[in-house]
């Protein structure tokens, strides 16, 4: 890893970026943002002064920087146990609702958006679901909308995840009902019936404004908050709380927890958090 003696300078760079673009990365967690910026400098053979100069002069370079800072690693049914739990315990409880509103915050290239749609479809609830998926990266959203994924010849892994989720499901679920696999091209494509259903919207979670007005039954935000510092994390979790219906569910990454304050505003059930309207004074 690079020497961090100049750690002040990447913080200064983030101030420049904030000043001359709509993006604010000042509250990203130190290690991750430092490494991303170091990588941008290395890939483009720029020193800090040159990076700042280029950022001030060139708007398309700013977009490139944003794309490079964003981490886009996601997969279909990452952590199968969570999806199995959602399928069995969480989603069926919403069956009586006339409409189900879902927000995937920081959806990246959309694999988990489609994963969840398959769950809804299996429970015959896809029709009445309204699905919004947002991300800061336009490139990731374009990829998500296209629904085509290179799987690095690791098709077995996806199939194993998929089968693990549905192993105890009432009906037999076939991977090929939802995906077309092209082994020669190393490509998994999502079938049209899923793709038509989602709204992919560019939205920066750091910003206060929301791109929609409705409240949600389920909000997914998996492995996104880990890139933010604690105060930004708290603001975003508060916003999720504000935008959930009572008893609405928030799904985080397997190794993301809530700090003490929020543990009073959400009840933890296994892998998911549900909004409570009670405040526990003992905290």
């Amino acid at each position: 890893m690079q020497e961090r003696e100049g750690s002040k300078t990447y913080k200064e760079y983030l101030k420049v970026l904030k000043e001359c673009s709509p993006y604010n990365f000042c509250e990203y967690s130190n290690n991750s943002i430092d490494r991303r910026i170091t990588k941008i400098m290395r890939d483009n053979r720029l020193n800090m002064d040159e990076l700042i100069y280029k950022t001030r002069k060139d708007q398309s370079f700013v977009e490139y920087v944003v794309e490079s800072i964003t981490v886009n690693t996601t997969e279909l049914f990452r952590d199968p146990l969570i999806w199995e739990y959602l399928l069995k315990e969480v989603v069926p409880k919403l069956k009586g609702h006339p409409q189900i509103n879902i927000w995937h915050a920081g959806c990246s290239t959309g694999q988990e958006v489609y994963s969840f749609m398959i769950l809804l479809d299996q429970l015959n609830m896809l029709e009445k679901s309204k699905i919004y998926a947002t991300d800061i990266s336009q490139k990731a959203l374009n990829c998500a909308a296209k629904g085509e994924y290179v799987y690095n010849f690791n098709y077995e892994k996806y199939l194993t995840n998929f089968e693990e989720v549905f192993k105890n499901h009432t009906t037999n679920v076939n991977f090929n009902d939802y995906f077309k696999v092209d082994k020669a091209k190393d490509l998994i494509s999502v079938k049209a019936k899923l793709k038509e259903k989602t709204n992919f919207i560019k939205h920066d979670l750091v910003k206060e404004e929301m791109p929609f007005y409705n409240k949600f039954d389920i909000i997914f935000c998996r492995n996104v908050l880990i890139y933010f510092n604690e105060s930004l994390q708290s603001r975003i979790v508060q916003r999720f709380h504000d935008n959930l219906f009572n008893k609405g569910v928030m799904v985080l990454g397997t190794h993301e927890g809530l700090n003490g304050f929020f543990r009073t505003k959400f009840a933890r059930n296994n892998y998911v958090y549900s909004k409570t309207d009670t405040f526990h004074f003992k905290y």
Binding site: S29, N30, N31, R36, T74, I226, Y227
Partner: peptide, 8 residues
């Protein structure tokens, strides 16, 4: 404190 990341 510990921070986690799912980057490459």
């Amino acid at each position: 404190s510990i921070s986690l990341s799912t980057e490459e």
